[in-house]
Simulated assay, not measured.
Amino acid sequence: MQKRSKYLSAFLVTLFSSSLAFASGIVLKLGHIAEKTNPYAMGADHFAELVKKKSNGEIEIKVFPSSQLGAQKELIEGLIYGTVDMTLTGTAELGTFQPQMAIFDMPFLFKDRAHAYKALDTVGMELGKPLEAKGIKLLGYMENGIRHVTNNVRPVKSPADMKGLKVRVMNNKVYVEMVKALGASPTPMAFSELYSALQQGTVDGQENPSAHIFTKRFYEVQKYASLTGHAYAPEPVLISMMAWKKLTPAQQEIIQSAANEAIAWQRQLSEKEDQAFWEKIKATGKIEVIDVDRKPFMEATQSVYKQLAKTVGQSNIDKIKALEK
C-alpha cells in the first residue's frame, strides 16, 4: 500500500510539473489574408518554426491564413484591442491607422528591390515607431511583391487604355488617387470579396502582385494582365503591444531575432517565386500577359506626389529617394 502511495505521489508530481510546463508555454495567434502557397504566407510559417526552435518550444505561433481571423482592417484593429496577437498586413491598410506608412505604396517609389529593402529597413522602421503608442509594434517588413494591373475589358498598354475601367483598390488614399490619375475609376473593396466581384463584373479589374494573381486564381476571371509594376508592396510583420508586453526581454529577443531571419529568408523566396508565378499564370492559357512601356504610367502618376506629399511627408520621400544611389 505504501509502495502504491509512493508511485501515486510520484505520478501526481510528474503530472503537476507537466501541467505547469504546459501552462508556462505561450501561444500567439498570427493572422493574414494570403493563401498558404503565397510567399509571405510561407514566410509566416517559417517565422513560426524559427520561434519554436529558438524558444525550445516555449513559444508557439499559430498561423491563420486566408482571412480566417478577418480582413486586413480587422486584423490591425485586433492588434490594438488584443484579440489578435500578430499579423502580416499591407502598408496601404496600415496607412489608415498611421498615414505616413502609406508612403511605401506611392507609385514607382523604388528603383528596384534592393532600394526598397534599404528604405524599409531604415526609414520604414523609423516610421513604424509611432505605431507603438497606438498598440502595435513593427518587427520588420516581409515582401508582398510588385503590383500589376489586370482587367476584363481590353488590353491595357498605356494609361489611355485605363480610361473608364472600374478597378478594385485597397481602402487607401494613395491607391485611390493613383488609379484616378491613370484615368480609371477606383473601387475600394475587401480582398476577400475580390474574386466574386471580378467574376460577377462588379469591378472590371484589380491590381496585385503575381503571387496573389496566381494563388487567388484571379487569372480565371480576368482576360488581360499588364506588367505595369506601378507599386511595390511591403508586408509589415506586426505584434500587438499587449502581447509584446507580456513577454520577458529574452522572449522579446527571440521573437525579434526570428522575425529578422524570416524576413531575410522570405524576401529571397519572394523574388525567386515572382517570375515562377508569371510562368504559371501564362501556362494556364486563360489570361494574356502584356509587357508595357512603364514611362507613361510613371508620368501620369506624378500628380499623386503633389496631392499626398503632406500626408506621407515630403522629407520621408526625400530620404527614400536619397537611398537610391
Rank of each mutant, 00 (worst) to 15 (best):
K6V: 11
V149T: 13
F277L: 00
G201Q: 05
G128T: 09
S257C: 08
G25V: 03
R267D: 01
P249W: 13
Y117C: 08
S5T: 09
Q252A: 06
I263A: 00
L182G: 06
D161F: 08
Q314C: 07
N38S: 12
V63W: 12
V84N: 04
L198P: 06
S67Q: 08
K319N: 09
I136P: 03
K62T: 10
S55E: 08
V174K: 03
L88M: 04
F218Q: 00
A262P: 00
F11C: 11
L198M: 10
Y175D: 11
A300L: 08
L269D: 02
V174A: 04
S55N: 11
L238M: 03
V292W: 07
K3I: 13
A276D: 07
I61Q: 04
E271H: 13
F11Y: 11
F104E: 01
K282T: 13
E193Q: 11
G78R: 06
H230N: 06
A258F: 15
I281A: 00
Q2Y: 10
L127S: 05
A48I: 02
Q68T: 14
V312P: 02
T311Y: 10
A300M: 12
Q251D: 02
L109T: 03
T91S: 14
K216C: 01
E35T: 14
R217Q: 15
I26M: 00
P236I: 08
K223A: 10
K295C: 12
A10H: 00
G201S: 05
K111V: 06
G128A: 05
R294H: 11
K325S: 11
Y219I: 04
G183N: 01
L28R: 10
T89S: 15
A114C: 00
K286N: 12
E261I: 07
N260Q: 05
L20H: 12
P236L: 01
A309D: 04
L131T: 02
V13L: 11
K166D: 03
A10I: 01
P249N: 12
M242K: 15
K280A: 09
Q302P: 01
W278F: 15
S270A: 10
A71W: 07
L30W: 08
F64D: 07
I213N: 05
V203Q: 02
N152G: 09
W244F: 13
E193M: 09
N144V: 05
G229M: 05
N38P: 02
S240V: 11
T301G: 00
F64T: 06
G31R: 02
D85G: 05
K129E: 14
L247H: 04
H115A: 08
A300Q: 10
G70E: 03
E143V: 13
V167K: 05
R217A: 13
A119S: 13
D121N: 15
L131E: 02
H32T: 10
E324F: 01
I146K: 11
L120E: 02
G140A: 08
Y141A: 12
V169C: 08
T215P: 11
I255C: 04
V237T: 13
G313V: 04
N208T: 12
I80L: 04
